[in-house]
Structures are given as structure tokens and as C-alpha cells.
Lab assay of single mutants.
Amino acid sequence: MTTFKLIINGKTLKGEITIEAVDAAEAEKIFKQYANDNGIDGEWTYDDATKTFTVTE
């Protein structure tokens, strides 16, 4: 398992979430479901060097 981080730069929600996932594809699926569940819709980026996803509304 690898640790992945999501940085949320939303209009109403900001913060960071860290999860353990098998790979970046699994982490992205989990993070996008979390964002969808919380009404966050924005532009996604991923930095493989730091294993960090960012979503900006």
C-alpha cells in the first residue's frame, strides 16, 4: 500500500485527506468519490513525485 494525499481547494471546503491505496488509480477513484459526495466539482491535478492529488474549484 502507498500513501496518497488529496488537497482540497474548494469554494466552501478546504483541507487535506490522506489515504492508503494500492496505486494512484485506486486513490483517484476514492478521492473523486469523496469529492462527489461532498459536492466538490473542480479541476484535478496529480503529482506522482509527491503522490498528491489536488482539486480546485
Rank of each mutant, 00 (worst) to 15 (best):
N9F: 07
W44K: 01
A35D: 01
E20A: 09
K32P: 00
I7Y: 09
K29W: 09
T52F: 12
M1V: 12
I7R: 05
K32R: 12
D41Q: 07
E26G: 11
D23Q: 04
L6F: 11
T54S: 06
E43Q: 05
G15K: 09
I19T: 08
E26R: 04
V55C: 01
D23F: 04
E57A: 06
K11Q: 06
G39M: 14
M1K: 14
V22Q: 07
D37Y: 04
Y34E: 04
T45G: 04
N36V: 10
E20N: 04
Y34S: 09
E16P: 03
I30V: 09
T3C: 01
E28N: 08
V55Q: 04
I30W: 15
I17H: 14
T56N: 08
I40V: 10
G15N: 06
M1W: 14
I17E: 13
A49Q: 15
G39P: 05
T45E: 15
A24V: 11
D23P: 03
M1Q: 14
G10C: 03
A49M: 08
L6K: 00
N36F: 13
N9R: 05
T56M: 06
V22W: 05
A27F: 00
T54G: 12
E20Y: 11
T3P: 04
N9H: 12
T3A: 07
F4K: 00
E16D: 12
F53W: 09
Y46P: 00
T3R: 14
E43S: 02
A24I: 09
D37C: 01
V22Y: 14
K5W: 01
M1I: 08
A25P: 14
K11I: 04
L6W: 10
G39H: 11
G39Y: 12
L13T: 04
Y46S: 14
T12A: 04
G42P: 02
N38L: 13
Y46E: 13
E16L: 01
V22M: 15
N9S: 08
E57Y: 10
T12D: 13
K11V: 15
E57F: 03
V22F: 10
T52D: 14
G39D: 04
T50Y: 10
F4Q: 01
K32M: 11
G42Q: 00
N36E: 11
Q33F: 08
T18S: 06
A24K: 08
T54H: 15
E26F: 11
D23Y: 08
A49T: 10
T12P: 15
G39V: 14
Y46K: 04
N36T: 10
T45H: 13
E16V: 03
K51W: 09
F31P: 00
Q33L: 10
Y46R: 09
L13Y: 09
K14P: 09
W44Y: 13
I30P: 06
N36P: 03
E26I: 13
F53P: 00
E16C: 03
E57M: 02
E28Y: 10
G15F: 05
I17K: 07
F31V: 15
G42M: 00
K5H: 04
V22E: 13
V55F: 04
D47V: 03
E26H: 13
K5Q: 05
K14Y: 15
T54V: 05
F31G: 15
V55H: 11
E57D: 09
I8S: 13
T56Y: 02
K11Y: 13
F31Q: 01
A49C: 02
Q33I: 06
L13D: 14
K11C: 02
T50V: 10
K14G: 11
G15T: 14
A24H: 15
E43A: 06
F53Q: 05
T2G: 06
V22T: 07
K32E: 12
G39C: 04
A49G: 04
T56D: 08
Y34G: 02
F53N: 01
Y34T: 07
I7A: 04
N38Y: 05
K5G: 11
K32S: 12
N9D: 03
K14T: 12
T45N: 07
E16Q: 05
A27T: 06
I8K: 02
E26S: 09
E26L: 07
K14V: 15
